[in-house]
Design a protein around this nucleic acid. Structure first.
Lengths: 166, 166
DNA sequence: CGCTGATAGTTAACCTGTTAATTACCATCC
DNA sequence: GGATGGTAATTAACAGGTTAACTATCAGCG
C-alpha cells in the first residue's frame, strides 16, 4: 500500500466530500456483492420467468432435487430453508403455492409432529428436466466468459467471507 | 468434459442424484453471492437497526451524501436509484417515508418537470454523522479479519463480474 | 400547433425479506 | 402425569423486489 496522496493537507478537489461517506458506495463490499449478484441473475431470470418460476421457487426445487428425486429426498422445512437461504416465514408461504401447483409434496413427519417433510412432486421433476439443462448452458457460457479460474477464485473468496457471519 | 464415471451403468450410490441438479447449490455463484452478502450484512444490520434505518434507506442517504452534503448534492431520483441499486418503484415508496421523517428533501426540477431532485436534509446529515463512524469501524474490523488483500481481490472480481450484466 | 414517441415517476399487484408473536408439538424434570 | 422450557412451523404486519400499466412531461417533426 503506497502513499497515493502526496499532500494530505490539500484535499483532492475532484473528490466530492469524503467526510460523511467513509467508503464510497462503489467500493463497499455489500453493494459490490449486490451488484454482482444482480448481474449474474440477469442472465437467469428471463429463463426462469419463461418457465413460470421465480428465483426462490427454483432454489427450493433444486435443493429438494439434490436430496434425491421424488420420495427418495425428503427434507424437513428447516433444512430446506437453510440450504436454499430462505427464511422460514417465506418458505411457509412458498410451500403452499408450490404444493397447489403440484411441484412439491408436503407431508407431516411420523415420529415428530412438528416437522414438515418436503419432497419433489412429479410435476416438479418434469420442471427440473426442462429447466436444468437450460440453466447449465447459461451457467457454462457465463463461466466461460468470466473465466473458469476467476469463478473458482471468486467462489473460494465468497465461501471464506461467508464464514465470517456474525 | 472428461469421463469421470468409470462405469456409467453403475451410478455412484454416494452421490444422491446429479442428473437434475446441474451444479450443487453450494457451488452456484448466485447462492454464494447471496450467502456472502448475508454474512457481511449480519455485521451491519444490528447497528443500522439501532439507528432506526434499514439497509436500503441507509444506501439512499449515503448516495446522496456522496454527491455533496445538503443542497450541494442534488441528484434526480433515477440517478439515486442506479447508484443505490434500488428499483424506481421501491425508491418512490422510500422517498415518501424518508421525506416524512425529514431525512431527505424532495423537490421538483426547474426546467424538467418530470425529474424529482433529492438531497440530504439536516436530520439526514445528523444521522450520517452518527452512523458513518460506527459503520467505518465495523467495516475496518471486517476488512482486517478477512485481510485487506483479499477484500481488494474480491472487489476486483465482483466488479468484473458486474460488467457481465445482460 | 398538434401528433408522435421517448423519458421520469408513480401506481398497482404480487411475491419475498424481516421481525415478532403465536401455535403445536416434543422433552424433561419434579 | 402435569408444569416447564425448547423447537418447528405458522401467522401477522410492514417494507422492499419485480414486472406491467399508467400518468405527466419533454422533444421532434410534419
Amino acid at each position: 500500500m503506497s502513499q497515493n496522496q502526496p499532500d494530505p493537507t490539500k484535499p483532492d478537489p475532484t473528490k466530492p466530500d469524503d467526510r460523511f461517506a467513509p467508503r464510497a458506495t462503489k467500493a463497499a463490499l455489500p453493494m459490490a456483492l449486490l451488484r454482482a449478484r444482480e448481474a449474474v441473475m440477469s442472465h437467469f431470470r428471463p429463463m426462469l420467468e419463461r418457465h413460470g418460476v421465480n428465483e426462490q421457487q427454483w432454489r427450493v426445487i433444486r435443493v429438494l432435487a439434490e436430496a434425491g428425486e421424488l420420495g427418495a429426498g425428503r427434507l424437513d422445512a428447516s433444512e430446506v430453508a437453510v440450504r436454499a437461504n430462505i427464511l422460514a416465514p417465506s418458505l411457509t408461504r412458498m410451500i403452499k403455492a408450490l404444493t397447489i401447483r403440484g411441484l412439491i409434496v408436503k407431508a407431516r413427519d411420523e415420529g415428530d409432529g412438528r416437522r414438515v417433510m418436503l419432497s419433489v412432486a412429479p410435476a416438479g421433476l418434469a420442471l427440473l428436466r426442462e429447466v436444468a439443462p437450460e440453466q447449465a448452458r447459461i451457467y457454462d457460457e457465463l463461466e466461460a466468459r468470466f473465466g473458469r479460474n476467476r469463478v473458482a477464485a471468486l467462489l473460494k473468496l465468497l465461501d471464506a467471507l461467508s464464514a465470517l457471519k456474525a
